[in-house]
Design a protein around this nucleic acid. Structure first.
Length: 712
DNA sequence: ATAGGGTTAG
């Protein structure tokens, strides 16, 4: 019937909008003649999801003096929810009350659902309290919504109140609460709900199990996980695919790699969801290569966006950045469309190796596909552009975001800090608070490290002291590390050492390491030895620390001590971490290794470097050979310096790009003083702008000077 | 006429 009269109704509705009074009354008469009343018209439009028409007919109905009945109100109220029309919805609420429907349970129930949709839990709760006899569905909708908000106390209160009213909550209600607690991160409450439902004699079903397992995993409760696994087997819930995926995920989070694989292998039929959970679980346990293997093995199957995205995320989180970029390209040739999660998983890979062109391509992709308003995408772009040396683009992304979260602010601040833009970082820190965003412990790491770059010890102390006093953020290990670096770098080594001694908890290897590397900057043997002793106890297998101490000795020509440290390394089987540099040239990322001759253009690189060295010496350059660890002849030291990967990468860039084209190099260690001097020279001699990002910060070379002002 | 629950990617 609705189908037959629809054209007529549509016509009527359009007359409502625009036509003259005469044609409107004609249309109205027409539908009346066909036996369709206005309230009925409303029901028909509502069933067809023509929400605009519902409201229009409703207003017209009122002008005709027809009083809404108990059936019209729920429909119109539902329509308000669907249209996100809060004001109209509130008017309906008042209207229903004055029309005498204040006790009508259907009207009240529809109002409650409307307020729940608008996230106005207080209003929803008020309506609930007026319901003479709340139903299961209505009650559990409200309860699970409170749970989803993380309002544990109110959820439980409502839960008990409901049962007191005699509402028998069923499995669906309990499951709703469990998943609600999960979404708000109240994992322990989710687990407790699961246990309580079990104690009350309800039989958890597949949905209950797959709802509670993520919480068990996040809490890392493997014993509870095993119990639930047994329950799954006993109840025969094994064939449920959601349950299997959730089990794999739980074991992965609990570091039970073999149990995880066991569940996967016992599956009768391979499921994509389970496969995705396995990939994530493997890389979470440091087995990226196995994850890639599994992924390749099941590539023939119908892998989906989630599969590709999780593989990309695994790669970019585990140092396989180039692989991540390749996967992104590959998924598109396979016809899988990246979505708003894929982009923020890929962007860190671009940032890590400063693959600006790939990053821009991902940015363009998100613009073309309308996923630029996503907070995660925006924050990831801010971070990517900052790490690729493009602070202006980074700031632009920040400014264009329709809404920002803590991560967006922190990313921008970290970017400024990394670029040595201390005052900008501090300004952002102040601005975020004026915008109502509370800083967290990460924000303080950002602002303190910004102070480090500018040597602002006074400001650093100010922010450090204000942390717990004014912001309720307790200082963690990282904040002490930052302070030690800040003080140490600026030459206040005694102050840094005193700070470590006064820490309220045991300093870890990072804190002592910060002191050690500051001692390297100022070549302080005595304090360096103290710091090194502690670092070697706490972190005996990190070669970088031995190198630092050895370099301190080398700078004072204490070759016997250098030998002792080198012997220590050798006896512990440690080797110096090789220095790598990356440079992106014409959309291809080249990786260069110190002293490695495998790059096809190596002969040209060496030739060019030799020419440059001649020019440098003419202009008075003396190599900073004290940075070479080995006790060798001066001539050989120069040779060793020649091979530093950042220099090779810069020269490779010079050879393969047009004159004047800016270069950008990333290094996996800190830039050395000699390379710093050489690149300053090159930037002037070759008239190039050169960006070098090391593990600490950005160096922007232009016209023979560096943006760090030789302070790093 | 109103109306509730699940896994895997940030």
């Amino acid at each position: 019937m609705a189908r037959l009269v629809l054209p007529m109704l549509e016509n009527f509705s359009h007359c409502l909008c625009s036509a003259t009074k005469a044609s409107l009354s004609q249309a109205h008469a027409h539908i009346l003649k066909n036996g369709i009343s206005l309230p009925e018209t409303i029901q028909i439009f509502s069933k067809l999801d023509h929400f605009g028409h519902v409201i229009r007919v409703f207003s017209y109905m009122l002008t005709q003096g027809i009083v809404p009945d108990s059936r019209v109100f729920p429909t119109v109220i539902k329509t308000c929810a669907a249209l996100s029309a809060l004001q109209t919805g509130k008017q309906m609420h008042c209207f229903a009350l004055v029309s005498g429907f204040g006790l009508d349970s259907v009207v009240l129930s529809s109002l409650l659902h409307m307020y729940v949709q608008f996230d106005r839990l207080k209003d929803a709760r008020n309506v609930f309290d007026r319901l003479p006899q709340p139903g299961v569905v209505t009650s559990s909708a409200l309860i699970s919504r409170f749970a989803r908000k993380g309002r544990v106390k109110e959820t439980m209160e409502l839960f008990h109140q409901t049962r007191h009213l005699g509402v028998e909550l069923n499995l669906v209600s309990w499951n709703g609460m469990i998943s609600g607690f999960n979404r708000s991160g109240s994992y322990l409450d989710a687990v407790l709900m699961f246990r309580n439902m079990h104690l009350e004699g309800l039989k958890p079903d597949g949905t209950s199990v797959s709802s509670v397992l993520p919480a068990v995993g996040d809490l890392e409760m493997p014993l509870m996980g095993i119990q639930i696994h047994c329950y799954v087997i006993k109840q025969g819930l094994g064939p449920d695919k959601f349950v299997v995926s959730a089990l794999i995920d739980m074991y992965g989070k609990c570091a039970c790699a073999s149990e995880m694989s066991g569940v996967f292998d016992e599956m009768d039929e391979v499921d994509v969801g389970a496969c995705n959970a396995l990939v994530t679980g493997l890389s979470r346990n440091g087995l990226v290569d196995n994850a890639l293997e599994v992924f390749r093995q099941f590539k023939g199957m119908d892998l989906n966006v989630v599969s590709w995205t999780s593989m990309i995320a695994s790669c970019s989180q585990n140092g396989k950045d180039i692989e991540a970029l390749e996967l992104f390209r590959e998924m598109q040739t396979e016809g899988i469309k990246p979505n708003s999660v894929t982009i923020p998983c890929l962007l860190p890979a671009c940032g890590n190796i400063a693959a600006l062109l790939h990053g821009k391509a991902a940015h363009c992709f998100s613009l073309r596909n309308g996923i630029f308003n996503d907070v995660y995408v925006g924050s990831a772009l801010i971070d990517m552009y900052a790490k690729c040396g493009r602070m202006l683009a980074s700031r632009l992304c920040f400014d264009m975001m329709p809404s920002r979260n803590l991560v967006s602010w922190n990313s921008l601040m970290a970017g400024y800090a990394m670029h040595g833009k201390t005052s900008e970082a501090i300004n952002i820190f102040e601005l975020m608070q004026r915008c109502g965003q509370k800083p967290d412990h990460v924000s303080f790491i950002c602002v303190l490290s910004a102070c480090t770059q500018g040597g602002l010890t006074k400001e650093g102390w100010f922010y450090f002291n204000s942390m717990s006093r004014n912001h309720g953020v307790e200082a963690r290990m990282e904040h002490y590390s930052c302070m030690v670096t800040l003080l140490g770098r600026s030459g206040r080594l005694e102050e840094a050492h005193a700070m470590i001694k006064q820490m309220p908890f045991e300093p870890d290897s990072c804190v002592w390491g910060a002191l050690l590397s500051s001692c390297r900057v100022h070549n302080r043997v005595d304090l360096g030895e103290i710091a090194a002793k502690r670092v070697f106890e706490l972190e005996p297998r990190n070669p970088g620390n031995y190198i630092l101490l050895s370099n301190i000795y080398a700078s004072k020509a204490m070759w016997a001590e250098v030998d002792t440290v080198r012997d220590m390394m050798r006896s512990r089987g440690l080797k110096k971490k090789p220095g790598y540099s990356w440079i992106e040239i014409k959309n291809k990322v080249h990786m260069l290794l110190a002293g490695d001759s495998s790059h096809p253009q190596m002969p040209q690189i060496i030739e060019k470097l030799a020419k440059l060295t001649v020019e440098m010496k003419k202009s008075g350059y003396v190599p900073h050979t004290d940075f070479v660890l080995q006790d060798v002849e001066e001539q050989d030291k120069e040779q060793i310096l020649c091979g530093h990967s950042e220099k090779l990468a810069v020269v490779l860039g010079l050879l393969n790009t047009k004159p004047g084209f800016p270069l950008q190099v990333i290094k996996n260690l800190r830039i050395c003083r000699d390379c710093h001097a050489v690149i300053k020279f090159i930037s002037d001699f070759e008239k190039r702008e050169i960006f070098v990002r090391d593990t600490n910060r950005f160096h922007q070379f232009k016209g023979g000077v560096c943006s760090c002002g030789d302070y790093w």
